[in-house]
Every structure is written in C-alpha cells, then in structure tokens.
Simulated assay, not measured.
Amino acid sequence: MSIKVLVVDDSSFFRRRVSEIINADPMLEVVGTASNGREAVDQVRRLRPQVVTMDIEMPQMNGIEAVREIMRTNPVPVLMFSSLTYEGARSTLEALEAGAADFLPKRFEDIANDRANAIALLQQRVKAIASRRCLATPRPTPSPVPRSTAGAGRTITQPSTQFASARPVAKPAVSEVGAPRLPSRPSGKGYKLLAIGTSTGGPVALQKILTQLPADFPLPIVLVQHMPAAFTPAFAQRLDSLCKINVKEAQGGEILKPGCAYLAPGGKQMLIDGSNRAAKLTIREGGEQLNYKPSVDVTFGSAARIFRGDVLGVILTGMGADGREGSRMLKREGAHIWAQDEASCVVYGMPQAVAAEQISLYSIPLDKMADCILKEVGRR
C-alpha cells in the first residue's frame, strides 16, 4: 500500500510541483491538497493522510496554527516547508514546537545541489516520518520564570509541553538490538565533555534534554544538529532563552567551559582542538565530500583525539548513520556512548546505527535521557 500524503500550500504552482514529486515515487500517493491551514485541518479529518506537507505562511490559518489544531484533533506527522531566513527559522522552530515532525527548505535549490537529489530527499523525508504515529497532548506554554542566580539578569521559559505533542506511541521496553534501556547505576567514570549528535527530530529532543540541566552542569557540551546555516543562530538563541545552562552558536577559538553548550554552525564543521585541559573550538567550511555539514562524525572524531575516553557521547533521533564512526572512535578510546531508544525517536536511524553495531551501551527513552546524564555525571 502507498503512503497517503496531503499537500498544503497557498501557491497552486508549489502544490502542483510537490504533488508531482511525491506521486513520482510508487510508495507515495497524494490524496488531496489544501490552500490554507483551515482547509488543511478539514482535509486531514476527511482524508486521513499518513503525512502532511505544510507551508508556514498561508491565509485564514497559517501553518503553525494548523499544526497545533491537527495535533489537537487528528494527529499526523507533518513536514514543514520553510524559507531559509532568520524569521523563517523562528517560524519553523515554532512549528516544531507545535508538533511538526521535520522541515525542509522551500526552495529546492536550497535542499541539494542537484535537482534529482532534492527530489529524492523530499521523497525520503516523507517516507521516513510516515511510520510515526502521533498522540495529541497540546497544552499552553508556561510563562517565563527567572533563572537561578547562576544565570542572573536573564529569564527563561520552562519547556513547552507542546514540544512533545506529536510523540510516537510507546513500544515494548526490549530493544530490538539487545541493548539495555537504562543504566542500572552510575558508572563512576570521570568525564570532561558531553557530546550530542542528532538530525530529524533533534530540535525537540535537544530542548527536552537541555532544559533539564542545571546552570552548574559540570561539563562543556558540544551539539551537532543537522540544520541549515540560516537556522542555527535562531535555534541557539531559542535554546539559550529556555535553558539554565548557556547555549550559543559555536565560534572558532572559543575555550570550552562547563555549563555551556556550543551548537555547531549550519553548513560548517565544528572540531575540538588544543588539549584536554584547554580545549577550544575550530570552525571550518564544510567539505564537499561530506554529506553532512555539520557532521557528527567530524566533531566526535575530534573529541576522541583531544579528550580520549573522557567523553559521554549521546546519539539522538535522526535519519542515516552520521555519528556511527565518530562514536566508534570515541568508544575505542574508552568513552561511553548512549543512544536514544526507538520508541521515542522521530526517525530511528542514527541511534540504530550505533546500537546495531554494539557501539552504544544503552538505548534510553528521551524522557529519561536528561536524568540519566545527570546521574552519570554526579548531579543526581
């Protein structure tokens, strides 16, 4: 059976273009289109698609409002189309908070260098999120509250519960690759770095984890999220406004400091240089030979060179296998690698890649990850 898709955009040209691309894949079928958010909500109820592609800026009801309403009434995975601007990034992050599963740039030339690759990527993304079943649990976003004294002069908003409004239905506790789900007790190992890599579903997962870390978190954190260059500044700022720790887009030459998370800039590679006592960041242009810019493998590999085994590496939800080789390098040096479990992933690709080859020690549900990290580093 083909995957049923609803295409939503106020441009008839874009609706037709996306529909042609989707229908060109024998596994996909466009069952309807809509020109605004209100119509999209009605079509989801009537047609019961398995995936919705959604524009953000539309009349009557915009894409963000439509996602919220769909998640409230008839949850279904939503793939957003976004402009690669700062405002486009902010709107896309709002859509993800509302419950959207993933996003792609609206201009196809921004998706890939080659039109055929762009078409294949769109088809792949639709298929990747199609199996994700959703639960509707939207709630109002809480009001901002003051940070602790460690972050004086700034305010934070507690993490929105809407950010998990499109969670996958829970699956059995036994991992299909045999890894234990949770550490039974802290290992007692000492760490000098927390390294996290993720892709599809990562903005939700990172927010859920980072907002639970205290301002005095004892390690520096490096974050690699597959994301366009226009998005990472807005994403870093959003996380920083929500978290007790400091979060920033990484810059070359910065010395890694405890209680600070450094987000790899989109379109570039983030490496760790210096020594394990005075580690610093190097930002380089992304090489054309690499599929991912930023790449988890690149950052994790550099962490293995500088910190050896004193790293806790975490691989979260995402398509593909980026992070597997970098994690392998870290494990070879004695580092510990954890993976997000399948049931809580938007796409169980990257975590499966490290779990299937027994690189990761545990497969941990997203809602338990922060607590496990805190216990492991002695903060629980």
Rank of each mutant, 00 (worst) to 15 (best):
A229P: 12
D273Y: 13
S241N: 04
K257L: 11
Q269E: 06
K244V: 04
I272Y: 08
K257M: 05
E254R: 02
L263W: 02
K248A: 06
K248T: 09
K248R: 06
P220F: 06
K268P: 10
N276T: 15
P258Y: 10
K280W: 15
L239G: 02
L263K: 10
Q251Y: 03
S241W: 07
A236P: 00
G266W: 14
F235G: 04
Q269S: 08
I255Y: 11
G252D: 10
A234M: 07
V222H: 07
P233C: 01
F235I: 12
A236L: 05
H226R: 11
Q225E: 08
G253A: 09
A261S: 01
A279W: 08
P228K: 09
G252I: 00
T232R: 02
Q237N: 12
G259V: 11
A279K: 14
G252Q: 06
G266Y: 09
A250K: 03
C260H: 12
V224K: 05
K257H: 11
Q225M: 00
G266R: 11
Y262P: 10
K280S: 14
V224H: 01
H226K: 11
F235L: 06
G259E: 02
S241Q: 04
A230P: 10
A278P: 12
G266E: 04
V247P: 10
I245S: 00
Q225P: 10
P228T: 03
E249I: 03
G267K: 07
K257N: 01
R238K: 05
L281E: 03
G253Q: 00
T232P: 05
V224E: 01
S275Q: 09
F235D: 06
A234F: 14
Q237E: 12
L263M: 13
R238W: 02
L223W: 06
E249F: 10
L239Q: 07
I255D: 03
A279F: 14
D273L: 06
C243G: 03
E249P: 07
Y262D: 04
A236N: 00
R238N: 07
K280N: 14
S241D: 09
A264C: 11
M270R: 12
Q269A: 04
G274T: 01
I221Y: 09
N246E: 08
M227H: 12
K268S: 12
P265A: 03
K280Q: 14
V222Q: 01
K280V: 13
P220E: 08
K244H: 13
Q225A: 09
P220H: 02
M227Q: 04
G274P: 15
L271D: 09
I245T: 05
I245F: 00
N276C: 13
A229E: 12
K257I: 01
K280F: 15
K244F: 04
K244Y: 08
T232Q: 02
Q225I: 12
P220V: 04
A278K: 15
D273S: 14
R277I: 14
M270S: 07
Y262H: 12
A236R: 00
G252M: 07
Y262V: 05
K268M: 10
Q225W: 05
L263H: 06
A279T: 15
V222D: 01
N246A: 13
G259Y: 04
A234V: 15
G252P: 05
S275G: 08
K268A: 14
H226Y: 14
V222P: 13
I255M: 07
C260A: 06
A261E: 00
V224G: 07
G252C: 08
L223G: 00
G253V: 06
A279C: 13
L242P: 00
A229Y: 08
G266K: 05
N276G: 07
K268T: 10
A278D: 12
N246L: 10
D273N: 15
